[in-house]
Design a binder for these strands. Structure first.
Lengths: 243, 243
DNA sequence: CGCTTAGTTGAAGCGAATCAAAACTAGTGG
DNA sequence: CCACTAGTTTTGATTCGCTTCAACTAAGCG
């Protein structure tokens, strides 16, 4: 859980990303290799709750998150659903499409917060990748990172207690929302509501709430309202989160 | 769960794979593009329980399973462990190594049955991949398939009941062990013991055993001893396994 | 034949889900 | 600014499914 993520090179950063809290630039400029990406990018904006792709639809374009947070959701006809991944800027929606042409998308992509995407039409994107080895490498790296994260999450879902899951989740969001470059307050805003957290860690809303209350009571986290995390004892959380 | 897997081209097949049950050839000959792989392959044999790589070790070589079944295991210092993937011939151990050079392996690779591997030393393998686009594509496809499977398993671990998990597991093994080409008896041998099944589906040995007994009692599966599955009602299992 | 290991079955305990209701937050309009 | 409402979060009481603990059975092997 919570690998430090060795400063991921941004996939596409037309405008410089800035920290939502302190306004400091979040990532350095995109390497020259990726400049051509911006040429074929088409921007798209989504409000919270809106979906970009539905599970079962044909996958049309490739896409990258330029701001906000999106979730990948699976399952659900009888109400049960599981979030299989969260996407923060500047993540790329790589594995989000099925194999070859016209295969149906394996999960629904939904905006959690206000979300902006860069869409890359299939044909020109694949052509660009074919003649840009550096880009292909990045794609491969992202796929590997996603796989490692998915498997970490398998351990969480298969073997961890409710307390451990919530602690792990907080560490994960902390790492994603507060890059080392940003030196603002030692807290962050939760981009997800309790229902989404529950879907991500495989618990119910009530259990998540109870565990959050317990962490507050134990002084491991300090909050201001249900979404604003003012302070976290990272070391302590790591102990609680377990292996 | 249990996507039909559109006849995966074998990664490396020095000798033709044969069905463990009926001896029929399991997969067609390897495409010409992959012939050079066999040139750099070094075979390795492992007995059940032996490990190929330990979680935390430096990843040395790439590898492919040529026969038998291997498991990828995570976690474990306090006894809890989770199997994050099973490898059947002719699977490739792609995501099994960390990033770049000398990064530590993210999980332990252990033989479940008698296992034979083809090892590919890092340098020549990467050189070969760099000049063989078809191979690179195969690698990418495998990574994507593994990611999809890992996320299917996240749904299983996060949201399914014990009964659904065991049914899903049986379907998964059925699909892996009984390729459509093989027309032998409508059963298969479980390559894993109850303990490994439990680690894979996130339950305890006892619960797995109970659910298996229930499936037998309900007539959904017929067994001869604890490992030999004589017959399965695939359609019924799919209903039980849930979405 | 005893020993070991794997699997099955039973009884009791516990952690998370479920059911239910109160407290809080945010948005809207008087 | 405050009252009103809709949605979210928190808290409590109870239930249920899985785990835990424990005994027993079956198969492999010196």
């Amino acid at each position: 859980m919570s690998r430090p993520a060795p400063t991921p090179a941004p996939m596409a950063a037309p405008q410089g990303q800035t920290c939502a809290l302190c306004g400091a630039p979040k990532s350095s400029a995109a390497p020259a290799e990726f400049a051509q990406l911006t040429a074929i990018a088409r921007p798209k904006t989504l409000a919270p709750g809106q979906t970009h792709t539905l599970q079962g639809d044909a996958a049309r374009d490739y896409a990258a998150v330029t701001s906000g947070v999106a979730k990948l959701v699976k399952g659900a006809e009888d109400g049960r659903s599981q979030i299989v991944g969260l996407l923060f800027a500047p993540d790329f929606l790589g594995g989000a499409m099925g194999a070859g042409d016209g295969t149906e998308a394996p999960y629904t992509i939904e905006a959690v917060s206000d979300l902006t995407l860069d869409l890359f039409p299939r044909a020109p994107f694949e052509a660009l990748v074919a003649r840009t080895p550096a880009l292909e490498t990045r794609l491969m790296d992202q796929a590997r990172d996603e796989l490692l994260l998915a498997r970490d999450w398998m351990v969480l879902l298969g073997r961890k207690t409710a307390r451990e899951r919530v602690a792990s989740f907080l560490l994960h969001v902390d790492a994603k929302m507060r890059p080392s470059a940003c030196a603002c307050a030692p807290g962050f805003e939760l981009p997800l509501g309790r229902a989404d957290i529950a879907d991500y860690v495989g618990l119910t809303i009530e259990t998540v709430s109870r565990q959050m209350s317990r962490l507050k009571k134990d002084g491991v986290i300090v909050m201001d309202g249900p979404k604003q995390v003012v302070w976290v004892d990272t070391a302590q959380l790591q102990v609680i989160a377990g292996f």
